[in-house]
């Protein structure tokens, strides 16, 4: 069930996602910082690419990614707290 690229694809989502998380907090208190805004734009693209790559091979990361017509793939394993056990 688990795609053999799962670990690498998830790592990329986590790295790009955390970049966004941190930039968001900075921008909340520095909404006029143009270079941070530019960073955010690039980081958001990286994150979207990482999510797309993950979901195309490993299934939905958010409910928006549950695209199958014949099964509600959202409930498929694994769930994020199940790390270390396949």
């Amino acid at each position: 069930m688990m795609n053999h690229n799962y670990g690498a694809l998830m790592k990329r989502v986590c790295e790009t996602g955390f970049m966004l998380d941190d930039l968001i907090l900075y921008l909340d208190t520095h909404p006029c910082d143009l270079s941070a805004l530019e960073c955010y734009k690039r980081a958001a693209q990286d994150y979207a690419g990482a999510v797309e790559a993950f979901e195309s091979q490993c299934g939905p990361l958010t409910i928006d990614g549950a695209r199958s017509d014949c099964y509600w793939t959202w409930v498929e394993n694994p769930w994020p707290w199940e790390g270390g056990c396949e």
């Binding site: 959202w74 409930v75 498929e76 394993n77 769930w79 707290w81």
Partner: peptide, 12 residues
């Protein structure tokens, strides 16, 4: 409660 739930539909 999710962590102790073994069944996928119920985790969802």
């Amino acid at each position: 409660q999710r962590y102790a739930m073994p069944y996928k539909e119920c985790k969802g």
